[in-house]
Design a protein around this nucleic acid. Sequence first.
DNA 1: AGCGGAACTTAGCATTCCAGGA
DNA 2: TCCTGGAATGCTAAGTTCCGCT
Length: 768
Amino acid sequence: MAGGASSSEDERPLSKTVAGQGRANGESSKKPASKQTKNGDAKANGKEKKGKSAAPAPGSSDLSEEEEKSAASSSSEDEKPLAKVVPKKKQPAASGSTPKTAATKKGGKKGAKSESEDEEEDVKPKVGKNGKATTTAKRGKKAKDEDEEDVKPDVKAKGKGRAKKEEEGDEDELFKWWEAENNDGSVKWTTLEHNGVMFPPAYVRLPSNIKMKYDGTPLTLDPEPEEVAGFFAALLETEHAADKTFQANFFRDWLKLLKDHPPAEGIKVKDFNKCDFRPMFEYFELQKEKKKQMTAAEKKQAKAEREEIEKPYLIATIDGRKEKVGNFRVEPPGLFRGRGEHPKKGTFKYRLNPEDIVINIAESAPVPVPNIPGSWKEVVHDNTVTWLAHWKENVNGNSKYVFLSAGSTWKGQSDRQKFEKAKKLQQYVDVIRKDYTAELKSKIMADRQRATAMYLIDRLALRAGNEKGEEEADTVGCCSLRLEHVTLIPPCTIELRFLGKDSIMYEQEVEVDPQVFKNIKIFKADPKTPEDDLFDRLTTSGLNKHLGSYMEGLTAKVFRTYNASYTFQDQLNQLTPAKGTVAEKIAAYNKANKEVAILCNHQKTVSRTHGDSMAKLGDKLLAIKYQRMRLRYTLFNVDPKMKKKHPELVDLESDLEDDFFQRHETSLLETNIDKAKKKFEKENAKLQEEGQKPQKESVLNERIDKIKEENVEMIKERKAKKVEAPARGADADKILANIKKLDDRIETSKVSIEDRESNKTVALSTSK
DNA sequence: AGCGGAACTTAGCATTCCAGGA
DNA sequence: TCCTGGAATGCTAAGTTCCGCT
């Protein structure tokens, strides 16, 4: 079997293409390679985004050789076969329950394929599908009228299903099925009422004295360009504004607006570098400051007003239940903040109007009235989906939806289903692992790739990795890994280094199964270039189809959920002290959570203030030590015998250096003087209130002088290593107790510093 | 088979809220 | 009481998956 099957199998794929020309074409057809500038031409010829199965590949034969050499076990390698025959098409793993079967089946399968899979259980799912499909189709066409009359969604759906399918007869039965099955994903609601979406307030013009400048001249702008300039100005001190792509896209769109709305001064804006948005920025900052200064009462009132306005949008009624709506505010206009090297970042995202929004609501429900003039683009009644409103955003052409909030029944149920699926995977995971381990040696290249990918997904919790378009940031997941992302470190270690979702860097060195190592070596073998796909015969849909054959609904991402949950539980078990305090248990929980975050590579960028705040923490720690040092000196002064009694106290704080002493002593002096001044002012204010005369300036000066003297004294004491005991508290035991207290504070402080440092890039909330 | 669109989930960044410490 | 930092929440970008079409 192997022979036949494999040969047929192989051909199809063949790796993408050889380096140059193939992809160049591909690319050009699509788009002028604006892609990441990173390695411009490499990309141009290196990467061909879509077709994995593209051209016949010369490379295959090489592979086989390599493989033969390296892998005795897999004797007949079929790499070769791949190269030769080209008869069939590819059929990635199909439904066989075990890899082997799958392989065999494949060949013969194609004709029958779809049926065998869905066939039996299909009955009901099919209905569901049809229902949905039809509805959608209908909507697209706007055929809405036809069935519209059927009040009941179910009925409607049924009708369609029927139309599409052949059967008929028992409508009633079908009807019930719908009812009963509504968890199968087709019908989501019977009644749906809500108040639509909330549009942001119209643009408010800046005061006429606030103007950006061009080449030094203030420009008077129409509202449209002024608003967009303001979007940029607001980001002036963020890295967005410093980003070249962001600047270029913003400037291009802004110029477009200026074309129709030239500045009153008649100046032609051409050069971004001559633009000075600072006056606008400063105005915004001022506004922010004002907002902060509002009294608590004012803030409260503003909040109450806001809440009053959004009240109607908060709740939707579904089948009689009240449910919270999630993002009922439509996205305000702004500059697109794409992450990483997104080619479109900085692009102007338009303001939305009712004419952009499609509303989904029960027919029986009143159609909401927009809070700004205009009428909805469309009102639909699709009970097979859970969105309440939908629109298309102009920057990337992506669809945006208004859904219920995370706490709603719909989201909650689907969340639970997710975990149930992950739990169910537990029952299958052993078999799956066994199978892919065996398949690592498969003669069928496609299967071998799939097995290798599964290994990575399972072991490293990688994401599936769909192909992406040219107009997006260049990021990858497992199936879209390229050769350049994997480095082999003999004997059995691989280094993975790539930008994943959100352009977060994934960087790991892991020891892998020798066969995995060998496979990757084969996949990387010669005629390929660094920009070629590592798994050139694997797609996410192929992979998921294979996974689905083990367990209904099993897909690549379930492994992430599964492994995250497993790791969490496992760590929890290991770390939780049998009978610990609550604090210890919480610590265990946090630690386990952190492990998960690391596994899933959840990261955050280190905050801009991280460095500063760490330095502050460091100084705080040193300040405590300084205090302790003084206490020690006091102690030894009060009772010299203590030196013998507590030798461990004699030489502490060795990390306190002159540099710090000066800084600390100066800052102490400053803060003390500051405090004195404030106190003085307060006292005077009070006196004044009581109708008395304020104290003289000289009172304050005296106090300040005193502080200065004390400070000098303190420095002297430090140098002399001898501190006079205060009148009270000269008791050695008390001093010792105080030292102990400081020790504890030092400890806590140290721990929190380490903690903060080690967590600076780990995003802990995601996995929570 | 592969593409593209629809519908949802996932996740980082920004902002707001809140509690604990100087 | 004010400040600060961390948690909670809001926002929306960026993924995955499924499905129908060609």
